[in-house]
């Protein structure tokens, strides 16, 4: 499964790029004007460049523009919003929602990642030794990841329904108390985190499994000849050798989880109150969630979210870079 063309290609990419650069003397290339092959290259890349400017840079610029103006619906239509500088950011930081949203983001993100990763790793190790049906079962684990998020989120919402949900009916059948999963401030964040953990397991499983495939089998054979049991093999071989892949999986998970809107919005809309409001949900709610859109603070929260995502993103790129350099 891992030796698919795309995978082979990604392995060849850094080498291909590095191998071709020295072929052209760097000085000579700089002195000449654009050669005909460079013109062709620019021509083929032109649609992408235009696309990035129009559909990435421009919306992002508009977003910054929104955050430093006071946009109301009327100002939106008339285009005469007042410039307020960093006032929206000051408002966001001093809002009573801010500490709650930040804390919820931290709990939601780290709670999701910790369990997704642990369960994904355990399953990857479990599926490592092939047995009857193992590849079919592994493929079925991808299903939750491929379903539209709204489908999974509404299924979970119905399963966690207070009166008619299957989860509560199992709990009460065993003599437990009915839990108001989505409507109680104590459990709303826990509920959306559980659903999100479920959604993230397939991604972690696939990546960690492909990482495991790169650990040569002889290492394990040697270890078991030396009398190391499975537990010891895991801690002294699998875990250390999988560290680079694990780091990348966790960082990508962080970047993805910070962005999550759909799941939480469909299950609880961030409520009750602010009980399950994360930064992303807060931004979405301000801009689109209520009858009265308030784009300026929403854009400010969104930009804050970009900064956080980029910090983890650069960490990810550095790790990946170091890993490429060492291999």
């Amino acid at each position: 499964m891992t030796s698919t063309p795309a995978d082979v290609g990604s392995r060849g990419a850094p080498r291909g790029a590095a191998g071709t650069t020295p072929a052209v003397p760097p000085g000579g290339r700089r002195r000449r004007t654009l050669s005909s092959s460079q013109w062709a290259a620019v021509g083929f890349a032109a649609p992408l460049l235009v696309y990035l400017v129009l559909f990435y840079a421009y919306p992002l610029w508009r977003n910054i523009d929104l955050s430093v103006h006071d946009y109301t619906i009327r100002a939106f239509v008339q285009g005469d919003a007042e410039f307020v500088g960093l006032q929206n950011y000051v408002d966001v930081f001093s809002s009573s929602t801010f500490p709650t949203a930040l804390w919820n983001t931290v709990v939601f993100t780290f709670g999701s990642i910790a369990f997704q990763f642990t369960i994904g790793l355990a399953l990857a190790v479990f599926f490592r030794s092939s047995f009857r049906l193992s590849s079919t079962l592994r493929a079925m684990f991808l299903v939750p990841w491929l379903l539209p998020l709204i489908v999974s989120a509404s299924t979970w919402a119905w399963m966690l329904n207070s009166e008619n949900g299957i989860v509560n009916s199992v709990i009460t059948a065993f003599g437990g108390e009915q839990i108001n999963w989505l409507t109680s401030p104590d459990t709303a964040l826990l509920s959306v985190t559980i659903a999100n953990i479920w959604l993230g397991i397939p991604f972690n499983l696939v990546i960690l499994y492909s990482g495991l495939q790169n650990i040569p089998g002889e290492v394990y054979e040697a270890a078991s000849l030396d009398g190391a049991g499975p537990w010891r093999q895991f801690w002294s071989i699998t875990f250390p050798l999988l560290r680079p892949v694990s780091a990348i999986t966790i960082l990508l998970g962080l970047i993805y989880t910070l962005k999550v809107v759909d799941v939480i919005w469909v299950m609880t809309t961030g409520g009750p109150g602010d009980a399950s409001t994360t930064l992303a949900i807060w931004s979405y709610r301000e801009a689109f969630g209520t009858g009265q859109p308030d784009f300026s603070p929403a854009a400010a929260v969104g930009n804050l979210l970009i900064v956080i995502a980029l910090v983890f993103g650069f960490l990810h790129l550095r790790l990946q870079h170091r890993q490429e350099a060492s291999s």
Partner: peptide, 19 residues
């Protein structure tokens, strides 16, 4: 392109809405 993948969709949605 790597950085572009990290931008939250909510933010893009707001920018697109304005545009």
């Amino acid at each position: 392109l790597l950085v572009a993948q990290m931008i939250p969709a909510v933010v893009m949605a707001m920018g697109f809405y304005a545009v």
